[in-house]
């Protein structure tokens, strides 16, 4: 009887010991899912997010397309839209090209030739090809040859700015964003169109944007 009890006690201790050695949590996490980029997603904070980028560029595009000074010209104006003079002065981490590229691409598609976009960001690439053509290393292509590359009439400038506030006790924070877009006349230096987008968000815990 003694031996039997000892065997049972030893087996129980062994089993308990085996079960408690595992400390790694390998339970299944949340599966990857697609989300609607036009609406707030599951992970959201006080920074600039996909729905903000899409809303601001859509609003600016529609505003520019309904501006008679830009759209009612006999010759379609040449515009530079890139992030060269578009600065981020806010406390939000964001790739400025996401705003300027989306604005330019959607404007180019919607304008359908009523606006001409100059790719100044790639001027170096164009000059290199032109030099090769002029030197006779490559032929002249099939389109045409021009004296010079396109000069622009207008260029996009703008800023992303923010104002942060935090309740030290509750750790609740809010961020107000102001994003400005303006088109500058590249001869006169005047503003021909201006647009602004504002929003304010608050959250208990901020998330990390990368």
């Amino acid at each position: 009887m003694k031996y039997f009890l000892l065997t049972v006690a030893a087996s129980t201790m062994l089993l308990v010991g085996c079960q408690s050695t595992s400390t790694i949590d390998n339970s299944a996490g949340r599966a990857t899912v697609y989300e609607d980029t036009r609406s707030p997603g599951k992970v959201q904070g006080v920074g600039v997010e996909s729905q903000d980028i899409m809303a601001v560029t859509d609003q600016m595009m529609r505003d520019m397309l309904s501006n008679p000074q830009l759209m009612n010209r006999e010759v379609s104006p040449r515009i530079i839209i890139d992030s060269q003079y578009f600065t981020n002065e806010s406390s939000s981490r964001i790739n400025k090209n996401m705003l300027t590229d989306r604005l330019r691409i959607n404007l180019n598609r919607a304008a359908n030739g009523r606006l001409t976009f100059v790719g100044r960001e790639y001027a170096d690439m164009v000059e290199k090809e032109r030099d090769l053509k002029r030197m006779g290393v490559v032929d002249g292509g099939t389109i045409r040859s021009t004296q010079a590359t396109a000069g622009a009439d207008f260029r996009l400038v703008g800023r992303i700015m923010s104002l942060d506030a935090m309740d030290v006790q509750s750790q609740e924070r809010s961020r107000y964003h102001q994003i400005t877009f303006e088109l500058v006349d590249l001869e006169l230096g005047t503003y021909v169109w201006s647009g602004m987008y504002e929003f304010k968000k608050s959250a208990q815990d901020d998330i990390m944007y990368r």
Partner: peptide, 23 residues
């Protein structure tokens, strides 16, 4: 198809929603 445009309407108040087409 436009993106969602947010309009803030105060309690018992009024706000305007406006949208323009692309062409």
């Amino acid at each position: 198809e436009s993106m969602w445009r947010r309009v803030y309407v105060p309690a018992n108040g009024t706000a305007i929603y406006k949208e323009t087409s692309l062409n």
